[in-house]
Design a protein around this nucleic acid. Structure first.
Lengths: 257, 257
DNA sequence: TGAAGGTGACTGGTCTGACCAGTGGACTTT
DNA sequence: AAAGTCCACTGGTCAGACCAGTCACCTTCA
């Protein structure tokens, strides 16, 4: 357990880092809020007492971390962005590129997170929350005829509801991030036809199954069902030899026979 | 499900981004490997045909993502770093600062990941792997008298073994990252005495329990035990009112009575 | 011959000042 | 009041300069 590092690395601190720290600090302290604007680069130069090169290096770092966005010609200065998962996604994507992590691991990660979120939801839901979840799935039923975009929106709303009910947004954030990475990895193998109405119906059905388990307050069932759904959906993209770890997850809770 | 975004954002691509992409691409293609060196900034200026400011902005971004490291006076040029979890940690930390994620969520996240890793290990282990895991825990037993540093090292080795056996390094990476963030959040509340021998023994005992379940091939037990251990260890840092979601996780698999 | 010391060609970090192509608000014109 | 014009200001990029370090080489000395 426990680190134990008594001493910090004492590598030279560069000016641009100080600037980054100050701005990130102001954000952490709530002195800056998303939507607000930073002063212009030239104004920051005078405020920080550093050169424009230095200020710009700081802004580039913040920008690459998804904290701010500069746009040329914008007279209001760099914009402070709301939190986004962009940075997380970039890191996870990098993991896959360094070959530390493969598709199979991403999928089983999703099975674990999604299953856990649904299990928590089943255990922690209140009556009110159950009602609101049923409302979002009702929206899904209605949008299924309106087209993929609308359906997808309703789908996201459902998962947001799960996140709230499971009392753990971190799970949901990671889940969404990994989902995005998985989709980008298999995007070339996905045929256009996947957006067909039949598949939307299948997806809806899966969600209904999960919600049924949540309604019943049956955590293990909610976890098992959502994992199986994910497996059915994604395992096809995986070489047969690499599916064993995923199958091991499906045994997590004994299926009801 | 699925995105559906047909059109990409078409915001102006800045020069430094092109440079970042080229270098990251070369890394993804394996043309550059950790430990190797990039040409010096002035050399990159000629290779990319951009100004030094632009090249430097690119390097700062890469540096902030943990890809390279520049050191003044180093005649070999910027160093390409091996993959590290630094970037991931930064992102998760930011999540906690934006108040999207609290300590309770981090802890339950760990309970989920650690539990799942151990469950997978119990299900997927081979005889050889079991032997090597027992070897690492034997090392822990021996180092317990040598002091905290050595013990901690052996502890890491044990978890590395779990990661290998569970066939999922992503779980382990996230687990370690979140563990680091949790420790930094509660670091001020941790008394020095926590590194006492008694606590090392307790930790060792917890590991032995988990390994016992893995040896028996009992996935649910491995998950349940490791979750309970984490709960015992961390729940004290959480206000009583926020422990309910964690307790919900302990019910995941029925305890053996 | 071998070790100590000095030197200079590099490195990255920082600054200055300049130019460009856009943007958007203020101002003028209709 | 609506339409069009203009200009101050934005960020993006560049060239060139200086500094403080580092390290390899080379000289010098024992």
């Amino acid at each position: 357990m426990g680190e134990g590092a008594q001493f910090e690395q004492v590598r030279p601190v560069r000016l641009y880092q100080r600037i980054v720290e100050q701005i990130e600090g102001a954000l952490a302290q709530g002195e800056l809020k998303p939507g607000e604007r930073l002063p212009s680069e030239r104004e920051l130069v005078t405020q920080f007492g550093a050169s424009r090169s230095t200020v710009r290096e700081a802004l580039r770092v913040l920008e690459s971390n998804g904290v701010v966005r500069s746009r040329p010609g914008d007279p209001n200065g760099p914009e402070i962005l709301p939190f986004s998962t962009q940075g997380l996604t970039k890191q996870i994507t990098r993991l896959t590129q360094v070959d530390e992590v493969g598709l199979g691991e991403l999928i089983s990660f999703r099975m674990i997170l999604d299953g856990s979120a649904n299990m928590l939801a089943a255990r922690l839901r209140t009556q009110d929350e159950l009602a609101s979840m049923e409302a979002t799935i009702e929206v899904m039923r209605e949008t299924i005829d309106l087209g993929y975009e609308e359906f997808s929106e309703a789908d996201v709303a459902f998962h947001d509801a799960i996140a709230r009910v499971s009392r753990n947004s971190l799970i949901q954030v990671c889940n969404q991030v990994v989902r995005g990475v998985v989709l980008s990895l298999i995007s070339d193998k996905i045929s256009r036809s996947r957006n067909s109405k039949a598949l939307m119906r299948q997806s809806l059905h899966h969600h209904e199954e999960v919600l049924e388990a949540i309604r019943a307050g049956d955590g293990p069932a909610a976890a098992r069902i959502s994992r199986r759904n994910l497996y059915d959906y994604y395992a096809g993209y995986l070489p047969k030899g690499e599916r064993e770890p995923l199958l091991a997850l499906l045994l997590d809770v004994k299926p009801v026979v």
